[in-house]
Nucleic acid binder design. Structure first.
Length: 421
RNA sequence: GCGGUCGUGGCGAAGUGGUUAACGCACUGGUCUGUGGCUCCAGCACUCGCGGGUUCAAGUCCCGUCGAUCGCCCCA
């Protein structure tokens, strides 16, 4: 084996890539209906964007980024998630100056240096949206609804939506102390990961699989929300209900990125081994100002969905993805003169919008027929010297096996009519 | 970063230290001198991820390494 692809990456070959195109087309169509516009930002950004945006102490920034110095001594990182770059572009292009909300979407690769496993790659792909300029709870609900609708429309079954409110930074400070108080007596009994979480992020102890028993009866953040937070959360839920989006409140839901405020949510589905999260997001009211500085302050809410994970769950659920259209015509030319005529005809058919192919390996007729069969061609058009002399071509309908001869000129000038009538 | 399992032709998959590396699919050709999907026949790996070691002898044992996979952490 000579050179292999880097660990945790994939080659998407024909046969597989059609599934990706299908998902991407669905995403684009959906975004158009929800009035989200596409944005394409760089795959690499200043490292500082992510440390400032995603959060210095998150796992993503601490140990999962692909960071390197470029030739100009700038610290660069491959984007580990989509929001930071979109926020940067929003600020840099002064989109906060427009009167309406700004609704954006993106589809593209993200990079995290992690140990690969089922549904986890070092280069993976996300479809995400971001909505700036609204604190309205209906905005949160719309974002959640868009993700849910996407799953529905591609045929995913049994997707659950979990939501929570993580409040504001000041709410979290208070709650964090309460949690530490609660866990203090059993701190020594917690697993070693949780002992470090105790100081860094005690909320994470709550969803630890090992220490569940110590988490029983722990204070819940929803009980510590202030007036504004709980009102917002209640209204988000009302809007979700109005849209008939089923959801489950999970007061222990915590996300791995520091920028979330108020609403946080995840989509879950079984089928990828140990992993069940197929997408997530939330509101991030302080993030734009944090990245853009004074005068840029705008609220935001967004989501990111993992395409690899969606594909895995689709496969696990046996959901069929529509296959691309088969070949309309396979052209066979026998003899030098006929082959030249076939080249001409092929171009004419393709220009008319038909999906047409021929042999390029000088193979015998039988081999070409097999090839046409493999390509699932609807018709095979056979041109030999005798047909050529008469200005005709033999058309064989592969499914029925029936043949007719038609005029070369007719096929070349109006193929669709000649073939399908 | 840590642990389990695995790594044989384009794909799937036998091979439990010893002669020419099964088999299935796919592919190519013939059976059918201008016609596919069926049948039958023939062909198709100086070589078993890579490197080193043990042995008279290794795809088979040992070590290392790379990768895949599953899991821990965390997440998409």
């Amino acid at each position: 084996m000579s050179i292999q692809k880097p660990k945790g990456t994939q080659d998407l070959l024909p046969g597989e890539v059609e599934k990706w195109q299908y998902l991407e087309n669905k995403a684009r169509d959906l975004c158009q209906r929800f009035n989200y516009k596409e944005i394409r930002t760089p795959i690499f950004e200043s490292t500082e964007l992510f440390s400032r945006g995603v959060g210095e102490t998150t796992d993503i920034v601490e140990k999962e980024m692909y960071t390197f110095m470029d030739k100009g001594d700038r610290s660069i990182s491959l984007r580990p998630e989509g929001t930071a770059g979109v926020v940067r572009a929003y600020v840099e292009n002064k989109l906060y100056g427009v009167p309406d909300v700004t609704k954006l979407y993106y589809v593209g690769p993200m990079f995290r240096y992690e140990q690969p496993q089922a549904g986890r790659y070092r280069q993976f792909h996300q479809f995400g949206i971001e909505a700036f300029g609204s604190v309205d709870p209906s905005m949160d609900a719309e974002v959640i609804a868009l993700g849910y609708t996407f799953y529905k429309e591609i045929g995913l079954k049994d997707v659950t939506v979990e939501i929570n409110s993580v409040g504001t930074p000041s709410v979290r400070t208070v709650y964090r102390e309460k949690l530490q108080e609660f866990f203090a007596p059993v701190k020594d009994k917690l697993c070693k990961d949780c002992q470090s979480r105790y100081d860094r992020n005690p909320m994470r102890i709550l969803d630890c699989k090992i220490d569940q028993k110590y988490g029983e009866g722990a204070p819940e953040i929803l009980d510590y929300l202030d007036e504004e937070c709980s009102t917002h959360f209640a209204q988000v839920k009302e809007h979700l209900s109005a849209m008939e989006i089923p959801y489950r409140v999970n007061p222990r839901l915590v996300r791995g990125l520091d920028y979330y405020t108020h609403t946080a949510f995840e989509y879950k589905a079984a089928g990828i081994g140990a992993i069940d999260t197929i997408g997530g997001g939330g509101r991030y009211n302080g993030l734009v100002e944090q990245i853009g500085g004074h005068g840029t302050d705008q609220p935001g809410v967004g989501l990111g969905l993992g395409l690899e994970r969606i594909l895995l769950v689709l496969q696990a659920q046996g959901v069929e993805i529509p296959k691309p259209e088969p070949l309309d015509v396979y052209l066979i030319g026998l003899g030098a003169a006929a082959e030249k005529e076939v080249t001409k005809l092929l171009q004419q058919l393709r220009i008319q919008g038909l999906k047409a192919e021929k042999d390029y390996q000088g193979r015998k007729m039988k081999a070409q027929m097999k090839s046409a069969d493999r390509l699932q061609a609807k018709y095979v058009a056979i041109l030999g010297d005798d047909e050529l002399a008469r200005g005709e071509i033999t058309l064989k309908q592969m499914e029925t096996g029936s043949q007719v001869t038609v005029s070369l000129v007719d096929l070349g000038s109006n193929a669709a009519k000649t073939l399908f009538e």
